[in-house]
Amino acid sequence: MKKWLTKDVCSAIFLLLFSVWWLWGASAIKVQSFDNGLAADYMPKLLGWLLVVLSVVQLVLGLLKALKGEVRESDPVPKNHLVMLGLLAALVAYCFAFKPLGFIVCTTLFLFGTTSWLNDPKAGKKDVIFFVKQLVISMVITAMLYLIFAVGFKISLPTLWLQM
């Protein structure tokens, strides 16, 4: 069974399901009576069917390849799932905290967290001094970014004590 579930096959199945959902969404489009040009649902439907055809083709090709045993060694396989998930969680948290907590707080925290994680201290062990250094770097970078964007380019960024 596992032999069949190659990457191509999995993605093809997903795409097929997606295109079914898409076509369902297309049927929900309120079409106005429009004599001459095409209606608003023409393109979505066309694309939906195209995707159905293409994903079926990919599915078939993928299955054939799996049958023949031609499974290539694939490229960037995520080795460290935990790090990736943690990173994603940090980003999601950033997005949601952006408006309430403000740019400065969020960015500093995010930078601090990621640089501490990713950097390897020269001393070899991550002690307090290392974390303090990362915190300072994060704060400085955040300040620079704030200066450039909010002050220099006059782009309004939400901050904790000012309404945007």
Binding site: Y94, L111, T114, L118, N119, D120
Partner: peptide
């Protein structure tokens, strides 16, 4: 060091995306 450059660039991309039309 990439460990610092990467997060910095990541933050830049986030702000950049936001700044186009101030949209969450």
């Amino acid at each position: 060091p990439m460990g610092t450059l990467l997060p910095g660039v990541a933050v830049l991309t986030l702000i950049g995306g936001y700044a186009i039309r101030n949209s969450l």
